[in-house]
Amino acid sequence: MGFSQGLSGLNASSQALDVVGNNIANSQTVGFKSGSVAFADVFAGSQVGMGVQVAGVNQNFSDGVLGAGSSALDMGIQGNGFFRMVTEAGRVFYSRNGQFQTDENGYVVNNQGMRLTGYMATGTPPAIQQGAPVGEIQIPTGQMPARASDAGSISGNLDSGNDVVSVTPFDPADGDSYTYSTQVNAYDSLGNEHAINVYYVKTADNQWTAYSVDSTSPGTQGSVNLTFDTSGKLTTNPADLPVSGAAYQGGAALNFNLDLSNLSQQASENTMDSPSTTGYPPGLMNGYTVGDNGQIIASYSNGESQLLGQVVLSNFTNPGGLQSAGNNCWTETPESGQPVIGIADTGNLGSLRGNMLEASNVDLSKEMVNMIVYQRNYQSNSQTIKTQSELLQTLVNLG
């Protein structure tokens, strides 16, 4: 019996040293979770005991320290959750390793070619639609299409001290027929830029008329009468200035309103804050970033940014029940329970940090101590076998 006890101790210590060695070997593996051996005694009807056995190897899913990543698609998780990935064959894996890049087809993949999953943005402008299916995240490589201007606004001040314009009718070519002018840029359906000139004509005290002229593709002039009270506050509601013009270089004619409701009239110079319109020209992708909520946002040469998709996380009732699959991945088992899928920082899911990576949670100093302890344990068990051997030899000599 002593031999079996010693052998079981040697075997258990050897397996424990294997776990320690694996932990130390993966101390620099991104997202690695350290393991620890659980021992159990063996009696099998004997009150003395038959030795020891390895009951299992438990994984420590505590967080590793976040450090700076080296790729725009690097991500790190803090708290509960795993990245959800699928192979081309459709098999699902889970990982804490956030080292991702794109493949030749634009899919976001890990180093083993597994595709990261999440929600893809759809619509104009792109957004994550409620109830969208979880699928493989693919980053488009084409240019961002142009968007026609469909709204705009101007804010500023009109000088109440200006003289009433006496030259009529209004003529944009005659500077004496208007008081002040400013320019707004807009874009048609093909991204052609249009210069919209806005002219202000003082017709009486506290009375103005605003005109719009598309100088790029002249068409119908739009106008709106503006009335201010004695405090300089605009009372016209709505103060919408129509903008229209002819079609230009294949693009559709502009047709939208400029909101002038933020204009005021005070005894100070004519000034207009930066006017704005919706719309933009086409643009080529400059790059992309991952936000702390898992949103992948692309930036383009036209100065615009666009949501491409959002990474999802998965969590389990019992993460310790996951089956290690190598390559720093796990697979679902009946013991782990069904995955709960959602966006970072919702429910019991942890947070996600873009351009960060989670380091291994291996504590090297602790592992070195464990290695010494298991080594001593191995030596002690070998000494048990040696002692049993000496006892048998003594019995043989008595015979």
Rank of each mutant, 00 (worst) to 15 (best):
G152D: 04
I24N: 05
N22I: 07
G69R: 13
L241R: 10
R91H: 12
V20I: 06
S324G: 11
A298G: 05
V134D: 11
N370W: 03
Q266F: 14
N58I: 15
L349W: 03
A186K: 02
G69V: 13
M272R: 07
A25G: 11
Y199C: 00
T168P: 02
T87P: 14
G287T: 06
G279I: 02
A127H: 14
M356G: 05
R91G: 06
G250M: 04
G135T: 13
S177H: 07
G81C: 01
S215T: 15
P275G: 02
N206C: 01
N162G: 03
T29K: 02
S365P: 04
N23I: 08
V167P: 04
L352T: 10
Y180G: 05
G250N: 05
L66E: 06
M285T: 10
F228A: 08
A186D: 01
G294T: 13
N225Q: 14
V42D: 13
L260E: 02
V184F: 05
T289W: 07
Q338R: 13
I343M: 09
V20H: 05
R91C: 02
L7Q: 15
L391W: 07
V311W: 00
Q129H: 11
Q47K: 14
D41R: 09
R376N: 11
G287L: 06
L308H: 03
F100L: 04
N111F: 11
Q101R: 11
G337Y: 11
D159F: 00
S261Q: 04
